[in-house]
Amino acid sequence: MVHSMTGFGKGVCELPNKKISIEIKSLNSKQLDLNTRVPNLYREKEIEIRNKVGKKLVRGKVDVSFYVEAASSDKITKVNQQVIKDYYAQLKEVSTNLGLSENTDFLKVIMPLPDTVKVELAELDEQEWKAIAQAIDAAIDDITLFRQSEGKALEVDIRHRITTIDGLLQEVPKYETQRIDKIRNRIKENLEEIALQTQADENRFEQEIIFYLEKLDITEEKVRLSNHLKYFIETLESSDVVGKKLGFITQEIGREINTLGSKANDADLQKIVIRMKDELEKIKEQILNIL
């Protein structure tokens, strides 16, 4: 089944004192480009988060964001009493030496000084993390469903365009006979003009015609293009991650179409080739979004 690289998923974790929403967004990318926005309390679990998300989403530009609504902060603020006592003792001594008033508010002077207050992060509770991990899994499942839905739409469009190219390929034979006759007559007319001025060897003429027509023969290109189109559909139906593989197959399809165009030597065939190229370009654009 084809999956798109574009998607959005969300998981919510309701805890007694906080609500955590995990959002995962993804866009197309050549490889996995994973970015996380995780609160400091959960930083120790970042590698686990990246492994969990990367294993399931495989490829794309992926952003994982945590949004926390908490009744209290994860930071614990404590007054550093020992530091304040040391400051006070020193200031008291200076005050006595200078004969300053006993009514001086030392705390107002001390509290803005360095290290009087220390901030500690709360420790992560493992039960809380288990609940959050489940919310991450829910967000991954949500974005996976989104990618599947987008992938179905992409697959329908791409199948239609591959079918269109195959249909155009089926039109090629009806122009081949008249194309060969046109080329043969054009060469013969040119040589007849030359023959008026010089003697032409009929055997050599036939040999040159055969050689020229062999160079313009498109049988191999038609067979290879047909095989590539079939292989493309087989790959599209695979359960594997197929985005890159489909990209390689479209390159091969493009080569055969280009060769058809260079050998066409016929206005009607050139029109068919142009329509094939137009469909192929649209397929390439769609494949950029396939996982």
Rank of each mutant, 00 (worst) to 15 (best):
H3D: 00
F8N: 02
K10I: 03
G11I: 04
V12P: 02
E14H: 11
N17P: 01
I24P: 03
K25C: 10
N28A: 06
D33V: 08
P39R: 04
L41Q: 05
R43L: 13
I49F: 03
R50S: 02
R50N: 02
G54K: 01
K55A: 10
V64W: 02
S65G: 06
A70K: 06
A70V: 07
I76M: 12
V79K: 03
I84Q: 01
D86R: 09
Y88T: 09
E93C: 01
L98S: 11
N103I: 00
N103K: 14
F106V: 01
K118W: 00
E120R: 03
L121H: 08
E123P: 08
Q127Y: 12
E128Q: 13
I136V: 08
I140E: 04
D141P: 01
T144A: 06
L145C: 00
E150M: 01
R159C: 10
I162D: 11
L168A: 07
V172E: 07
K174W: 00
Y175E: 09
T177H: 11
R179V: 10
I180K: 13
K188A: 11
E189R: 08
N190E: 14
A195N: 13
Q199P: 05
Q199E: 15
E202Q: 15
N203T: 14
K215T: 10
L216T: 11
N227R: 05
L229T: 11
Y231R: 11
I249E: 02
N258L: 04
G261S: 06
N265M: 00
D268K: 15
R275W: 00
M276A: 07
E279M: 10
E281C: 00
E285N: 05
Q286Y: 08
I287T: 00
